Amino acid sequence: MTNRIKGKVLITGADGFIGSHLTEEMVRQGYDVRAFAVYNSFNSWGWLDQSPKEIKSSLDVFLGDIRDPHGVKQAMRGCDVILHLAALIAIPYSYHSPDTYVDTNIKGTLNLLQAARESGVSKFVHTSTSEVYGTARFVPITEEHPLQGQSPYSASKIGADQMAMSFHDSFQTPVAIIRPFNTYGPRQSARAVIPTVITQIASGKKEIKLGSLHPTRDFNYVEDTVRGFIDVMESNASIGEVINIGSNYEISIGETVRLIAEIMNSNIEIVTDSSRLRPEKSEVERLWADNQKAKRLLGWESHYAGKDGLRRGLENTVEWFTNPGNLKNYKADFYNI
């Protein structure tokens, strides 16, 4: 059963990769959206600065920081639904500055949950990540798979997930947890493998610097992830549930790189860059989503599933990144942690 949202929707992390796509799609669908973007002295709305004029004119933008409980309460005024995407997500940077991940991902989520409880929202959608599963103990990975904090990032997200569900169990806060597998597409940070490969090739490089090639991932095109968020938000059945959003297709990093090179008509040599390797026990070796629960509860299905779907999604992504106006925003010569 779905429930078309009528009140104002607060989207945290609206300035980021997935958040900006979600914000734009919800505005197109007629939702009343308040976009929470991180405050900065440039007055930048992140990727929302690139949105069409008609999208930006329809937005209510709030600049703040989820680590500030007072600002969070102000942002939530008049909102009936929360889509919480704001987080620190770069795994290498979590080795560098783990304290900031606790502050942002756990304490920031707590601030939002406290404000949501006090204001009596009708839905709180919390964003998890497939990284909380760690290396697969069985595949495909169901929502019952054990949680393994193999990096400070994944540990902080496990903490945030547990905090969110504790508010559902303790205070009946209407929490739903969406757990997207490796989302890719236009606007993704070059700290992720697909953009780093595309930007290096697009910049004319023949030697592509990468980390481990053998781990497998379940790549999820951003359009599918966005539909997953909206379906979780609108479904009454999602309350109190953790729901995987993934394509149910496993592919190695190395094979993904070869597919990108084929799409871009490029002969490349892959060079292992030791600075891009995770510590041995921290590397997540295998991710492969079981998406049956999403199909059963939400009626959600991947439109970019299997190798053919991945190819279509990568073609869209390559087209966006190779546009000179977009490529100029990336530093292909530097390793983004």
Rank of each mutant, 00 (worst) to 15 (best):
W320C: 10
K157I: 11
D290C: 08
D68W: 00
N265I: 03
R4T: 11
G313N: 06
G71V: 09
G159H: 03
P174F: 04
G309W: 14
L59K: 02
I243L: 03
Y101A: 06
S57K: 13
V102Q: 13
R227F: 00
T127W: 05
P98V: 00
V197D: 06
Y133I: 02
A289N: 03
C79P: 06
I263Y: 13
Q172D: 15
L147K: 14
I245T: 11
S94Y: 04
E223S: 14
V132P: 04
W300C: 10
K53Y: 05
P195Y: 07
Q188A: 11
T129P: 04
G7S: 14
I106E: 04
S212D: 13
A176W: 05
Y95V: 02
R217H: 10
N267Y: 01
A87R: 04
P152E: 07
E269L: 12
D224Y: 09
N244W: 10
T135E: 03
L259V: 01
F219W: 15
S154L: 01
K56R: 15
L147S: 08
R187D: 10
R276L: 15
E301S: 14
H145M: 10
S247D: 00
Q292T: 14
G16A: 09
S247Q: 09
V121N: 11
R179Y: 01
Y133P: 03
D290S: 05
L298M: 06
S58W: 00
S252L: 07
D32S: 11
S252H: 01
A37C: 15
R276D: 12
G306M: 09
K157L: 09
V232N: 05
R296S: 15
E25Y: 03
V232L: 06
A35D: 01
S166E: 11
N267V: 05
G64N: 10
P186W: 01
I337T: 09
A160H: 06
S57P: 00
A86C: 05
G46M: 05
I82W: 02
